[in-house]
Amino acid sequence: MSKYRTEFPDFPAADMPTMPRGFEDSSWHNDSCPSFTSEELGLRIWIDYADPAQREHDGGSRFMLEPSESEDTITETLLTDDFAMIQIAVESERQQIAECLAELEKADGAALGWQLDNKKFAVLLKRGLIRSEGDLFIHPKARKVSELTFTMAQPADMRVLYMGDNEGPAIMWLNQLIANFNASKSWQGHESEENLRQEMESRGWCEGLHINGHYLVLDLEHAHLMPHPDHPHNETEK
């Protein structure tokens, strides 16, 4: 017998729709109605009574789809009286997961976090669908990280390692660093952003003065530096 039949003995079996594949009965009598959860998708479907008079919330929708964890934000909560809409949303979630895994496969099984949509991949990591090592997101079928090659296209902006007398070291986008400097109006020795970028492109590094003292900026790609997968705090090695 299904769990909901025990937890909600007054719920008519004829009123229970067929659940999408992978959803297990997670009903509990202290809830307002039966529910079914997919651990893989991180989603829960609530099935309220067909008779509106039996529902806990007057005028509420019969079906609800929501993330099973509060921090899981890929799919927004869906309230509807049409179960077909729930099925469509579930399949859309399944497609997003497939696309995320395909993106890792294109990069030979792994990619650095800054190359991806961290929001989606953090959720997949939380669900156990992928794994991580340092700054890497790794496909479950990937080869050893030491054998991986990184084939994803580099972003248009530079990633830099910034170190100051009283700040850093920190890895960030160059335009983010420039915005921080501009906000404090502390470009000393560099008249413009253009000059800074020219130095970065020609030498791979620059140094100067900031309100907090001396600073040094390295262009990670130009200097052939990458975050090392064994180092969780973004240390680098050449």
Score class of each variant (00 low, 15 high):
1 M>T: 15
2 S>G: 02
2 S>Q: 14
3 K>W: 11
5 R>V: 13
12 P>D: 02
15 D>R: 14
20 P>I: 03
26 S>V: 10
26 S>Y: 04
30 N>F: 04
31 D>W: 02
32 S>T: 14
42 G>Y: 02
43 L>W: 03
46 W>R: 15
47 I>G: 07
53 A>T: 10
54 Q>A: 12
56 E>L: 14
57 H>M: 12
58 D>C: 04
58 D>A: 14
59 G>W: 10
63 F>D: 12
76 E>A: 06
77 T>E: 13
78 L>S: 08
83 F>S: 03
86 I>E: 05
88 I>E: 12
91 E>R: 04
96 Q>N: 08
101 L>D: 07
101 L>P: 07
104 L>I: 12
106 K>I: 11
111 A>N: 14
114 W>N: 09
116 L>R: 15
120 K>D: 06
123 V>T: 11
125 L>S: 06
126 K>H: 05
129 L>Y: 08
130 I>R: 01
130 I>C: 00
130 I>K: 05
130 I>D: 06
135 D>W: 15
142 A>L: 12
142 A>K: 15
143 R>D: 02
144 K>G: 08
144 K>I: 05
147 E>D: 11
149 T>I: 14
151 T>E: 08
152 M>D: 03
159 R>E: 04
165 D>C: 05
166 N>C: 06
169 P>E: 05
169 P>I: 06
174 L>A: 13
176 Q>S: 15
177 L>R: 06
177 L>V: 02
178 I>C: 10
182 N>M: 05
185 K>Q: 15
186 S>R: 02
192 S>A: 10
193 E>D: 14
195 N>L: 10
197 R>Y: 03
198 Q>G: 03
199 E>T: 01
200 M>E: 01
210 H>F: 03
213 G>R: 01
215 Y>A: 01
216 L>V: 06
216 L>Q: 04
217 V>A: 07
217 V>Q: 03
219 D>P: 07
224 H>C: 07
228 H>T: 09
228 H>K: 06
228 H>L: 07
234 N>L: 15
235 E>D: 08
237 E>K: 13
238 K>F: 10
